[in-house]
Design a binder for these strands. Structure first.
Lengths: 208, 208
DNA sequence: AGGAGCTGTGACCGATCGTTCTCCCTCTTA
DNA sequence: TAAGAGGGAGAACGATCGGTCACAGCTCCT
């Protein structure tokens, strides 16, 4: 899930500009890192595991990424592309158009997610909690991607005509995060429970 | 916080029964492990850091705990003693007596917690997310301690006369977990925001 | 033909991981 | 006073960590 191999074949490129930033090897490394990091966390996954799964040479990895941290950063970036934008946001917008319905639909999407057998949780939360040091670039990057999710919520809240969209988005995000942790604990019905809570907030903010 | 050094001096014990399970060295190891694990997580803290901080010999640690995993297990047990029981539960019960007020007071207690400069988050959530493998004993232990927190909530919900205390406790716990993650993200007002959500649930479940 | 650029191979680095071992010292209690 | 247990110190174990090195092979462009 969320690791669709649309792979974008970029081989046979134009003139000497064979940019290393989009080589086939780099893509395979990133794909392997995505699977391993999202499922097992950062610290638990070593470079060896990544090169083995990607079938790439050790030096090829270090030619494409100067360090493990930079690879993790690239993973987080891809996580936003695939999970936040390509999945959550897109799925919500596909299901309905009314902004309030879209907000509530988040938990319908989560419900399906929580029931997948290989539920991996939210990588941004995982990295944020795994890397304690608030000065660490990985910690900060995760925090930034979480802020971006909140921007999406705030946009929907604004469209819905909520009085204080920023505050609303923060509360909504607390609900989302709570449900994700509950799902990680094993509660398959966490999304439904949380949607019920969310509907209470909607009812208060928007008499309809 | 929550690491009060009440230390329980157990030296000079009775007859040969100098149980290794409560030696002074063991206590110092556990105290060091508590500080380090709760603040930095499990994987980030090595044995070396623990023996250095505790000032104990390497072999003394392994005479008291057969492995790092067992030390982590002992840490989690102490975390429940100090955090769940000795702090959260006690603090809530000290502040008020009405069960509904006690449920809401959780977020008053959280508010103070979130504002401490060395906020460490919930170790049970941290370990649960850090150790992905659901079969791992550390993962399972963390899950169990989270269930116990829910038991406390359920007790209060029952006393409050909620229709479905188990479901109520799960929703309340989702709110708590969401607020803790938000606090880890840096939101100092996460407890207030969450208490507002919580009050909506209370209002629906108990017309008063 | 030749050079540039990316990849593969495999040895290798120092550091750190969790864990074990041996030797000795210091208490306590019988 | 003797026995015995707990602790301290430090070397060492094999494994793994992230990261580097030299060298050879391939494919593409000019």
């Amino acid at each position: 899930m969320h690791n669709g191999s649309e792979a974008v074949n970029l081989v046979t490129q134009t003139a000497g500009a064979r940019s290393p930033a989009s080589s086939e090897a780099r893509e395979r490394i990133l794909a392997a890192a995505y699977d391993l990091f999202s499922r097992n966390g950062i610290r638990a996954v070593g470079i060896d595991a990544i090169i083995e799964r990607s079938g790439v040479a050790r030096m090829t990895l270090y030619r494409n990424f100067t360090s493990k941290d930079e690879l993790v950063l690239a993973f987080l970036e891809r996580r936003e592309e695939r999970w936040t934008n390509g999945w959550l946001q897109q799925e919500v917008e596909r299901r309905t158009v009314d902004p309030v319905d879209r907000l509530l639909a988040i938990f319908d999407v989560f419900d399906e997610w929580f029931r997948t057998d290989d539920f991996e949780g939210c990588s941004f939360i995982n990295v944020l909690l795994e890397i304690t040091d608030t000065g660490n670039s990985l910690h900060q990057a995760s925090a930034t991607y979480l802020v971006r999710i909140r921007s999406f919520l705030e946009r929907l809240a604004t469209e819905a005509g909520v009085a204080d969209p920023a505050a609303f988005a923060k509360q909504w995000h607390i609900l989302m995060k709570g449900s994700i942790v509950a799902a990680a604990e094993g509660d398959q019905d966490a999304a439904t429970r949380t949607q019920d809570l969310a509907s209470l907030l909607v009812a208060r903010e928007l008499k309809r």
